[in-house]
Computed example of a mutant assay.
Amino acid sequence: MDQLTSAAWAALPWLIAGLGLVVVHAAVLLPRQPEPAPDVPDADTKPSYAQLTTWRLIAACLVICLACQPLLMTAPGAQRPAWLVWSSGFAVLATVDAVSTWIPRGLTRLCLIELAVGLGLGALVWGDASALLGAALGACALGAMFWALWRFGAGIGFADVRMAVGVGALTGSVSWDFLIMAVFAAAIIGALWGVIHRLVAGPGRVFAYAPALWAGPWVAQLAQHLA
C-alpha cells in the first residue's frame, strides 16, 4: 500500500502537467491556428479550427492523456518529458485529425519543438544524453521515409510527414528496435482503420492517419512493458 501511494504521488505532477498541456493546446492554441490557404484542395469544406474547439474534443483529449499516464510512468526518467508531450500536445493533433482529417501546421511545429525541449530537458535533468543522438537519427530517418511516401503519392498528407518526424524522435530516443516496433504497430493500426473507413464511408474518402502514427509508440511501449 505504501508503494502504491508513493507511486501515485510520484505520478501526480506528471498527470497535472499533461492535463494542463492538453488544455493549453486544445482550448487556447487550437482555435487561434491560421486556416489553410483558399487554394489548398478541400480547404473550403473543412470546419475552422475554432469550430473544432468544442468541449467534447477537449474532454476526449483529457481522457486520452489520463489513459496514457500509466505507460508514461514506465518510461525511463530521461525520456519521460518527451512522452509527456506525446500524451498531451500530440494527442490533441491526432484527435483533431481524427475528427477533421486536418492538422494545423503551426501547432504541429510547436509540438515538435516541445518534443525536442522535452528530450533535451530529460537529458539535462537526468544527466543522460545518450537518447539525443537516437532521437535525431530517428527523426531524420522516419521523416525522410514518410517524405518519400508523400512525394511519390502514397496517399498521405504532408502533415503526416511532420507527425512521422515526431514518432522518429520519440522512438529513436529509446532504440532502433523500438522505432521499428512502433512503425509496424502504426502501420497495422492504420491499415485496419483504413479498411473499416472504406467499408463505412466508401472508397475514395480521405481518412486520418495521424491517430495511427500517434498510437504506434504507445503500442510499442505496452508491448515492451509486457514482454
Rank of each mutant, 00 (worst) to 15 (best):
I188T: 06
L179R: 05
H225K: 05
W126M: 14
I113Q: 01
A131R: 14
I64H: 06
V63R: 00
P211A: 06
G204D: 10
L199G: 02
V219P: 10
P13S: 08
Y49G: 13
C65Y: 05
S88V: 02
A43F: 02
D177E: 12
A220D: 02
G168E: 12
Y209K: 07
V219C: 13
G194R: 13
T95W: 14
D128L: 00
T95M: 13
T108N: 09
C111E: 10
D44G: 13
L52M: 14
A139C: 09
A141C: 15
A67T: 13
A116K: 08
V92G: 07
I58E: 11
R205L: 04
V28N: 02
M181E: 07
G194W: 13
F146W: 13
A116F: 05
Q3H: 09
I16T: 08
S100P: 11
A185E: 03
L170P: 01
P31M: 05
Q51R: 14
A139Y: 08
Q69M: 15
A135D: 08
A43K: 04
L4F: 06
R80G: 00
R162F: 04
A43S: 15
S100L: 09
A27G: 04
R198Q: 13
Y49W: 15
G190I: 06
L132P: 08
V96C: 07
L222N: 02
L124V: 15
L115Q: 12
L30A: 11
L30D: 11
M73Y: 12
G118V: 15
G18E: 02
L142K: 02
G153D: 10
